[in-house]
Amino acid sequence: MTDTSIDNHAYENEAQFGDYFALLKPRVMSLVVFTAFVGLLAAPVPVHPFIGFVSILFIAIGGGASGALNMWWDADIDAVMKRTRNRPIPAGRVSGDTALAIGVALAAFGVIFLGLASNWVAAGLLAFTIFFYVVIYSIWLKRWTPQNIVIGGAAGAFPPMIGWAVATGGIAPESILMFTLIFMWTPPHFWALALFMRSDYDDAGVPMLTVTHGRRATRNHILGYTILLAALAIGTGFTSVGGPVYLSVAVVLNALFLKGAVDIWRRDEDMSEADNFAAERKFFKLSLLYLFAHFGAILIEAGLSRFGLGGWA
Rank of each mutant, 00 (worst) to 15 (best):
N119P: 13
R27M: 10
I298C: 08
D270F: 04
G92A: 08
G153K: 11
D97K: 14
M71Y: 05
V241L: 03
L114I: 10
F284Y: 13
L286K: 07
I112L: 14
A68V: 15
G243I: 12
A10D: 10
M161W: 05
V134Q: 04
L289K: 08
Y137F: 11
G18W: 07
I61D: 08
S55R: 02
D19F: 05
A127S: 12
M71H: 03
P187Y: 11
D19Y: 04
T84G: 04
F109V: 14
L193N: 02
F113Q: 03
A167K: 09
L114Q: 05
H213W: 06
M161A: 06
L309A: 12
L304C: 04
I300N: 00
A22H: 12
R306F: 06
I227T: 12
I151Y: 14
E301P: 00
V121H: 07
L193S: 05
D3P: 01
V134E: 05
A231I: 15
R87H: 12
V150T: 06
I298V: 15
K285L: 04
M184K: 03
L195H: 03
A107G: 11
F158S: 12
M81S: 11
M178D: 11
G64N: 13
F131H: 13
I130T: 09
L291D: 08
M178I: 01
A204Y: 00
F257S: 10
T145V: 06
M208Q: 07
W185K: 14
R281T: 04
L40V: 00
R215C: 00
F179M: 06
A192K: 08
F109T: 13
K285H: 12
G163Q: 11
L57G: 05
R93T: 07
A297D: 07
I102R: 07
E301S: 11
V104T: 08
W73R: 03
K142G: 14
